[in-house]
């Protein structure tokens, strides 16, 4: 039983981290709270489904195009909505939340629900680890998740644009004086975060049917993980994912799946009381904490 807990806890944690990384990254770089994040996730799922089933493209191509489309959608949201209210936190929150709702509820209205909306798994079958069967799709999730984390690290530390991202995140004024266009970087960061949401969707959605409600769930989970790990801290997000991921699996095994959400809720409330900025929150002492 402990073997199951350890393996599935790990998988669950990677899934949580995958769904939260994009939100955290966008916020960490440009301070844009992308409340349309869950909608981006679902958008990627449905677009790739449409390409796959209506245009009959191969899965790999449709997945890539869906990821690209989602990133473009993110960039467009920045360009046409966020740019006009940049710096007004209240408006940024409301505008992204509104855009997310429009996308999600439009899909619901257009009748995107039912068992036919599924994405294919990467490869069928399962593997026996010790005494526990794990299907290949979950292994894919874990593998790609880990690769993505390593890739992101190299991207932000060793590429020009990645370094620009970090520059803006650390000190916008200095970065501006070095000739980094903060508006463009912020737009890119939203596109990038949306793209990550799409990657997560392509990987995770094949486990079940695509439903609009998942969009809200993804948003809730991403928020929960970010609140606990600390907004803008990628390491914090991963750490929080593992804490919640394992805690959820343990409660699932010990007392039943219905208590999973309670664990997240309790974790949020506890962290807010004990350390409001999250486990590894990079809250600048004077500017954001009051």
């Amino acid at each position: 039983m402990w073997e199951v807990a350890i393996i599935y806890g790990f998988i669950n944690s990677v899934i949580l981290a995958l769904t939260a990384l994009g939100f955290s990254l966008t916020f960490g770089i440009s301070g844009v709270p992308n409340f349309a994040y869950g909608a981006m996730y679902i958008f990627a799922g449905f677009v790739s489904w449409l390409l796959l089933n209506k245009l009959e493209l191969p899965f790999f191509a449709s997945a890539l195009i869906a990821i690209a489309f989602t990133a473009i959608l993110g960039a467009a949201m920045y360009r046409f909505v966020l740019l006009r209210v940049r710096g007004l936190v209240i408006s940024e929150v409301i505008a992204t939340f509104g855009v997310g709702l429009i996308i999600l509820e439009l899909f619901r209205y257009l009748g995107f629900s039912g068992f036919e909306y599924t994405l294919p798994v990467f490869s069928d079958g399962s593997l026996l680890i010790g005494h526990t069967y794990v299907d290949y799709q979950r292994l894919w999730i874990v593998g790609v998740g880990i690769l993505l984390a390593i890739g992101l690290y190299f991207f932000t530390h060793h590429t020009k644009i990645g370094l620009a991202f970090r520059g803006i995140a650390q000190d916008e004024h200095t970065a501006l004086s070095l000739g980094i266009n903060s508006d463009r970087i912020a737009g890119l960061s939203v596109a990038f975060g949306s793209g990550l949401a799409a990657v997560a969707a392509i990987l995770i959605l094949p486990r079940g049917t695509i439903s609009v409600n998942d969009g809200y769930d993804v948003l809730i989970n991403a928020m929960a993980v970010c609140i606990i790990g600390g907004l803008g801290s990628s390491v914090g997000v991963v750490l929080a994912s593992f804490i919640i991921g394992y805690a959820q699996i343990m409660t699932d095994i010990l007392s039943g799946p219905q208590w999973k959400m309670i664990i997240s809720l309790i974790a949020i409330l506890v962290i807010l009381v004990v350390k409001p900025s999250g486990l590894l929150g990079k809250q600048k002492e004077l500017e954001e904490r009051i």
Binding site: F35, V89, L231, E288
Partner: peptide, 26 residues
């Protein structure tokens, strides 16, 4: 104690979570 988007995030999450909890726990 925190400025900015934290309040929005927490207020968004809490009712949806309570809904799920009521649903799951009965």
């Amino acid at each position: 104690r925190l400025r900015g988007v934290y309040f929005s995030m927490v207020t968004l999450v809490l009712p949806l979570m309570l809904e799920r909890i009521v649903e799951a726990s009965g």
